[in-house]
Nucleic acid binder design. Structure first.
Lengths: 149, 149
DNA sequence: TATTTATTCTATCAACTTGATAGGGTATAT
DNA sequence: ATATACCCTATCAAGTTGATAGAATAAATA
């Protein structure tokens, strides 16, 4: 399951990508736009900033803005940050491998084998999708759902 | 994350597939073989039986055995049974769709779009892997890791 | 038929995680 | 100065997870 934190983070970052990197956006505005509890969002944005994904400005006219180009921010990084490794089991993780205590031989473990496939499939999607490409996809999808003519 | 229940279930079912469908296997033996707390495994096997994946026999010479051919038992069914839908968010689930309360328009939601891809990728793996095919994979993998000559 | 064997079922628990809120601290623009 | 808006830490209720306990039930067999 994707946590609310990760979900809110993606939504907020997408909104910031839409907003552009010229001027910052306030927590309160982001919260209202994306229907996220403001105080909770505050925590999330703080985390994203400490990870270097966001920049912030204090005081009047302040707020948050993307620290990098939307094409260089991948969903994989966001999800890992809030929900940990993508792999369903630690022994199948590429970025945070931990062996199972109860596993004698990983090479002969069906769970390991299958979950490694799941992790690879998930990583392919999330590490292959940037904020920029996701925006494009959304745009294309909305074209299809409400055509101009 | 895969729950321990789902993980133990897969391991137990694999062991039962190895064991063959001629005679049943006792909880205690399964627990020892797979390093699973016996009382906990008991609960899991009971669930699998109530789902029709296992058959049981009481009394002496009793135990559990697969109710179906290993080629007809898919990881997707097992995982869904213990951990719920494969999709990271309910609005991306095929088998248990629930819309997000905070989502105005699903067609324009980046989270929805991306997570639908993740769920499809996961489902492709888990609904495409049966106990039988997983056994084959494990066999092949162990051939590679410890060759005969 | 008494007894052993092994599953069935329900209840309970501690530990942990999650989603969320509260409230004061700090930097900045005007 | 002062209003604005982010920064940071603490705290909390509710839910979930992994696990254990113990008695009830069914089946084989001596």
């Amino acid at each position: 399951m994707l946590s609310k934190k990760a979900k809110y983070a993606i939504k907020a970052l997408l909104a910031l990508a839409d907003h552009g990197r010229e001027e910052p956006m306030r927590i309160a505005d982001l919260a209202r736009k994306e229907q996220i509890p403001a105080k909770f969002l505050e925590l999330i944005l703080l985390g994203l900033r400490n990870q270097g994904m966001l920049q912030s400005r204090k005081g009047k006219g302040g707020g948050y803005l993307l620290a990098r180009d939307p094409a260089d921010i991948y969903l994989g990084q966001i999800v890992r940050m809030f929900d940990g490794p993508l792999a369903p089991v630690p022994c199948a993780s590429q970025t945070a491998y931990v062996p199972c205590a109860d596993c004698r031989n990983e090479a002969v473990c069906g769970v390991h084998l299958a979950m490694k496939e799941v992790r690879d499939a998930t990583a392919k999607v999330l590490d292959g999708t940037s904020l920029a490409s996701l925006r494009t996809q959304v745009e294309h999808a909305s074209d299809l759902s409400s055509p101009t003519r």
